[in-house]
């Protein structure tokens, strides 16, 4: 039997899609989260409802959109609300999962999308929060996707744009935040979750061809590695077919 061939981004998209359950509402950020959400909807979660910060709820994009706001994203949406309304509805309890990207994430799941280096004199100025802060503050649980490199997973992010568990247990409650906080971190090396007691990032599964040791080497802090870590299941032929033929045929994101 021939080996299934796939790229790291394709694996990321498939792993992300699997984390979405049918019937859930998902607040989708731009980039790979968009791909993961569309793939989930075409696979096991046809009743999943996507929410976009431009105000579109439950659209049926025919083509992979270029933006969380463009006409392809809003296509066939039964309602398009205003920006403040969609965030308000999330606060009210209508958003189960928040699906985000970002430049850096730290051991407590705090995300930086604002600047690399000192805020006053940044080495790199990034985009800023966009809807990410609101999504992570208000949705019930948060999935983060990104590349796995030591500088991208530092012990402390240079700037907390988007709240994870802040500085540890109880901090979200003390700060007055509503949602449950970070739940999964998907990178091109593995899938991470968070320890219930310490709120620190822990390994859940490593991708095929990677070991927990390698993942630790590429992480800027001490990753908790429980005994029961497993290998991430490879993308199935069906997942890859739908991804390549229906979700991202032009390889805009999954190259």
């Amino acid at each position: 039997m021939s080996e299934v061939q796939y790229t790291p981004r394709e694996l990321l998209a498939c792993v992300a899609a699997r984390l979405i359950k049918d019937g859930e509402s998902v607040f989708v950020g731009t980039g790979l989260p968009l791909v993961g959400a569309l793939l989930a909807k075409k696979m096991h979660a046809p009743n999943m409802m996507a929410i976009y910060e431009c105000g579109a709820v439950d659209p049926e994009p025919r083509v992979l959109p270029w933006s969380v706001s463009c006409s392809w994203t809003t296509y066939k949406a039964p309602i398009i609300l205003s920006m403040s309304s969609v965030f308000g509805h999330s606060r009210a309890g209508y958003a189960d999962v928040g699906f985000l990207g970002g430049a850096q994430i730290d051991m407590y799941g705090n995300i930086n999308a604002t600047c690399i280096g000192d805020y006053e004199h940044p080495r790199v100025r990034l985009t800023g929060s966009g809807g990410a802060n609101d999504i992570a503050s208000l949705c019930e649980r948060v999935i983060f996707m990104g590349l796995h490199l030591p500088e991208r997973l530092p012990e402390r992010v240079d700037y907390i744009t988007t709240p994870g568990y802040l500085d540890g247990p109880g901090a979200r409650e003390r700060a007055g935040l509503v949602g449950g906080g970070p739940w999964r971190v998907i990178t091109h090396l593995g899938v991470m979750g968070f320890d219930e007691e310490t709120c620190r990032m822990k390994l859940i599964s490593y991708h095929p061809g990677v070991t927990p040791e390698v993942i630790q080497q590429f992480t800027g802090f001490e990753l908790l590695i429980p005994d029961d870590v497993t290998e991430t299941p490879k993308p199935t032929e069906e997942e890859l077919r739908i991804l390549r033929e229906e979700v991202d045929p032009c390889q805009l994101f999954c190259f």
Partner: peptide, 12 residues
């Protein structure tokens, strides 16, 4: 509102 709490955005 319940956005931005606990983050560096409040500081900046």
């Amino acid at each position: 509102c319940k956005s931005m709490l606990g983050t560096d955005i409040m500081r900046t």
